[in-house]
């Protein structure tokens, strides 16, 4: 393929439009994780919650015939499953990395198990009609930009709303301060009358909820069916995004779009073939994260008590 076609407007429009679609699950996941990490709980298990969300969203959308029922059930599945992680790592104070990894194994196994048992071994699951793009009157007519940003499906628009809403809550409400306090200094937060455990559990459940929607967006917005391990590491990319965006949901929105576009590019290259092996682009989000940790590591300040279990009565 030649240079002109790679950088033609049509190619770029299609690429970035697909990039936006690819970024939807990343936005939900990273915004959710931003909230829980602010309160001190790491979203290692994001990957698993996405799988739960993806599977149940697909199942219920298929059975009910309604995509919205699907999204809702996906979110609920993500949230309920995240309760496991919350109970284990917050209430029982177990190591978040171990609980998270075990939860991911559980989620992969469980969704595959159900998928096989319900839909059989054939990989040709029944496809459902996905969410259709909604052109925003006026804005979608802007050349290039309109097609990329204003002709997307409802979950894309809602993801922006969610990121903005979370940004607002974190910046402008007392809740945002409380979350930060719990993640920075739970002992002081407790002294200020904040129920540390409750805040951590609820913020983690919010993360699960968002991860569930992220999963739902995979099955109901892009693919139209559930395939095994459909999340394909997106949960971990979300973790990277949260670090890169320094726990800011709006920056996470932008970073998600960047990583989504890289993913879109990689898919295209895999189909079309290119001088650069597509693997480079698959690995790019992870490479960028690791490099940023190295280059800006000292300036990136995570919530101080991130990943540290809090014990109420200790001496």
């Amino acid at each position: 393929m030649n240079e002109t076609s790679l950088f033609s407007a049509a190619f770029l429009t299609a690429l970035f439009s697909s990039g936006v679609r690819q970024s939807i699950p990343l936005i939900y996941g990273s915004v959710g994780d931003t909230v829980s990490e602010r309160s001190g709980v790491m979203g290692i298990s994001l990957e698993g919650e996405m799988l739960f969300g993806a599977f149940f969203a697909y199942l219920f959308a298929l059975r009910s015939g309604s995509l919205w029922v699907g999204v809702l059930m996906g979110a609920v599945a993500g949230m309920l499953s995240s309760l496991i992680v919350a109970v284990w790592s917050v209430l029982f104070r177990q190591d978040q990395s171990i609980v998270g990894i075990m939860f991911n194994i559980l989620a992969t196994g469980f969704t595959n198990f159900l998928n096989r048992m319900i839909f059989g071994t054939s990989n040709a699951n029944i496809s459902i009609d996905t969410f259709q793009p909604i052109a925003i009157p006026g804005l979608s007519k802007i050349p290039v930009v309109g097609e990329i940003f204003f002709n997307q499906d409802i979950l894309a628009y809602l993801s922006v709303v969610l990121a903005a809403a979370v940004f607002f809550v974190l910046r402008r409400t007392k809740l945002g301060l409380q979350l930060g306090a719990v993640g920075e200094n739970p002992r002081a937060a407790q002294a200020a009358g904040i129920p540390v455990y409750r805040v951590r559990v609820l913020s983690y459940m919010f993360c699960g909820f968002a991860a569930g929607v992220a999963g739902a967006s995979l099955t109901l917005s892009t693919v139209g069916t559930f395939t095994e391990a459909i999340s394909a590491g997106r949960g971990f990319i979300c973790l990277a995004i949260v670090i890169l965006s320094r726990w800011n949901p709006l920056t996470a929105l932008v970073a998600s779009f960047g990583f989504g576009s890289i993913q879109a590019l990689q898919i295209r290259l895999q189909v079309q073939g290119s001088a650069l092996p597509y693997q480079v682009f698959v690995a790019l989000p992870y490479l960028i994260t690791v490099l940023v940790l190295a280059l800006a590591g000292h300036n990136i300040r995570a919530p101080r008590e991130l990943g540290v279990p809090f014990e109420k009565e200790s001496r």
Partner: peptide, 20 residues
Amino acid sequence: MLIGRFNAVENVTLITPDAS
């Protein structure tokens, strides 16, 4: 019992009786 990253006003906000 102060949150190091917050300023005085924010630290005081935490102990107000206002709803979250």
